[in-house]
């Protein structure tokens, strides 16, 4: 009889030398990084017995559900997110087309726009906020600028990848009729990628709602400003109330956006 007999089990594969080296390096780095950040396992137990937690309760709902205190800044947060999404996504539409080899007018344009956008995306969102607060002054205006830049960077990345994957045949057909660059894109690519564009736009809006909550921590307006102020007074009960409210708003927006996106794509 051919084939393996029951008695002879195949030997278990053993990890090679390279695996051990990689594991060793990772463990060493983890121990080193843990020391650097002051890893302290006792925090996981001590955190629960901290007297600070008492300050979180009870939530003063009549203070939280007040237009002047919370709801107006929350509305401002929402407005920042709306403007930033529309500005960012609006600018992203033409820019994304220059970034994809399929639709870019020429190679240098593509390389330049790709590298610039990579650098823009490498700067964290709140760094943008802080820089723009310094540039144009404290307030929601700086916040909407910062979030516009960040939505542009995210949107361009997501959408240009969609354009990369678009069906090239309509594009070829449009080119074959002798169309110029812009009309060719407008008729050959845009209709096929538009549903994704809108879906990503909604997704970016969700991201912006989440991000605009913390913008206020660096002076860029919105509900974060109130959170920061109440934290400085150690009014964690109010902070918790605001967070719960924000949580509800975020969940509602997310559910609506997910439902719309599911219909689109």
């Amino acid at each position: 009889m051919n084939g393996p007999t029951i008695a002879a089990r195949p030997t278990r594969p053993r990890p090679g030398a390279r695996t051990w080296v990689v594991v060793g390096v990772l463990i060493t780095y983890t121990v080193f990084a843990g020391r650097q950040v002051g890893f302290d396992i006792s925090t996981f137990w001590n955190v629960w017995s901290n007297p600070l937690w008492e300050k979180f309760w009870p939530v003063p709902w009549d203070w939280v559900l007040d237009w002047h205190n919370v709801l107006d800044p929350l509305l401002e947060t929402f407005q920042i997110a709306v403007v930033a999404t529309l500005v960012g996504c609006g600018l992203a539409l033409p820019l994304a087309f220059t970034m994809s080899p399929l639709t870019s007018p020429n190679r240098p344009t593509m390389i330049v726009s790709r590298s610039v956008m990579n650098v823009v995306r490498a700067v964290p969102d709140l760094f943008w906020a802080k820089l723009l607060v310094t540039a144009v002054g404290i307030g929601a205006f700086a916040g909407s600028w910062a979030l516009s830049v960040f939505s542009l960077a995210v949107m361009v990345k997501l959408f240009s990848e969609t354009v990369d994957g678009a069906d090239p045949r309509p594009l070829e057909a449009a080119r074959a009729t002798g169309g110029r660059h812009l009309p060719v894109i407008r008729t050959g690519v845009l209709p096929t990628v538009l549903p994704e564009y809108v879906a990503y736009g909604l997704y970016v809006f969700e991201l912006n709602i989440r991000a605009s909550v913390v913008l206020g921590l660096v002076g860029a307006g919105g509900i974060g400003r109130v959170i920061e102020a109440q934290r400085q007074y150690f009014r964690f009960d109010r902070v918790l109330g605001i967070l719960l409210l924000v949580f509800v708003v975020v969940i509602v927006i997310e559910q609506v956006s997910v439902a719309v996106r599911r219909r689109l794509v």
């Binding site: 650097q36 950040v37 002051g38 890893f39 302290d40 925090t43 001590n46 955190v47 901290n50 600070l52 709140l126 989440r210 909550v213 913390v214 921590l217 959170i227 934290r231 964690f236 902070v239 967070l243 924000v246 949580f247 975020v250 969940i251």
Partner: peptide, 25 residues
Amino acid sequence: RAVPELILAMILIPITGLGPWAGAL
């Protein structure tokens, strides 16, 4: 997921003190 890292860090800083451990946590 609904609570941003920055807010978590704010809550943790009074407990762990200022510094990288609050951030990592």
